[in-house]
């Protein structure tokens, strides 16, 4: 053969180098999480190697810490409602952007996407000013509005992108087969953008769950989980915090599994 094929040795070398790179990358991403999990079960207050023994004390402590439990509850409340609100506004907004041409459409689209690119601090301060002006007392509800605003862009981008990929002939075919615009939305469009809506919803939930800057400005007396953790950090990382972290990792895993199942294209 005229063409040179790389020798077996150099190919082996390249493969090994690539595999090592991937291994290091994975280690960099996941070792800290394993360390966190390990220390949450360690029966010593000091976070030093070697581990001294197994305990579930920190989880028990966590259970009796009413501030922490309240913070977790608040976080779920905020993330759930922020997701619902942002979906309720974002999905119709994406539909409008997709279906209608109107003057100033591209400006409108950019305005909707702006909150993603704005730093949370700016969103936080500006919404704080607005609520103050309107005489709204700060509460978890104001946090929800803040999160929903900041996350709107996530939902609109995802759903809009999916709608753009949907062939326009699908909806036309539904009309052609006797479906009114409303029926064809329910029967044809919605099932085909379902996974994008679920994906955007899950992403919004997660982003809202660990959001700090906007929450920091807009919350009243109530604390969300990340805010609580941040405030206790001033006294150093405690095994209790590690236990909370472990629980969050577990919940995230469950969420990922749910997302994969929900968004999987049905195949036989």
């Amino acid at each position: 053969m005229a063409q040179k094929t790389p020798g077996l040795l150099s190919r082996f070398g390249a493969d090994t180098a690539f595999m090592s790179f991937v291994a290091i990358l994975m280690a960099f991403l996941y070792i800290p999480i394993w360390v966190l999990i390990a220390f949450s079960f360690n029966d010593s207050r000091s976070l030093t190697w070697p581990l001294s023994g197994f305990t579930l004390d920190w989880y028990r402590k966590l259970w009796s810490n009413s501030d922490l439990i309240a913070a977790i509850g608040n976080s779920f409340y905020v993330a759930t409602l922020a997701t619902v609100v942002t979906l309720a506004v974002g999905v119709p907004a994406a539909m409008v952007l997709h279906k209608f041409d109107f003057p100033g459409k591209s400006v409108f689209r950019r305005l909707i996407l702006l909150p993603i690119t704005l730093p949370g601090i700016v969103t936080g301060i500006s919404m704080l000013n607005m609520f103050k002006l309107m005489g709204f007392p700060l509460s978890l509800e104001t946090v929800i509005l803040g999160h929903a605003t900041a996350l709107l862009g996530v939902v609109v981008t995802q759903v809009y992108a999916r709608l753009q990929r949907l062939p326009p002939s699908l909806e036309e075919a539904a009309f052609d087969l006797g479906a009114s615009p409303w029926r064809s939305f329910i029967d044809i469009t919605l099932p085909n953008i379902r996974s994008a809506i679920i994906g955007a919803g899950l992403l919004s939930f997660v982003l809202s769950f660990d959001e700090i800057p906007v929450t920091f400005f807009l919350t009243g007396r109530d604390n969300t989980l990340p805010m609580y953790i941040y405030s206790t950090m001033r006294r150093g990382v405690t095994p209790e915090i590690n236990a909370v972290g472990t629980i969050i990792v577990l919940l995230s895993l469950i969420l990922i599994v749910v997302a994969v199942i929900a968004t999987r294209e049905r195949k036989k």
Binding site: S169, L170, E172, A173, D176, I188
Partner: peptide
């Protein structure tokens, strides 16, 4: 009724 160029099957 129309047969679409890309068939437009659901």
């Amino acid at each position: 009724n129309m047969v679409f160029q890309d068939y437009a099957l659901f």
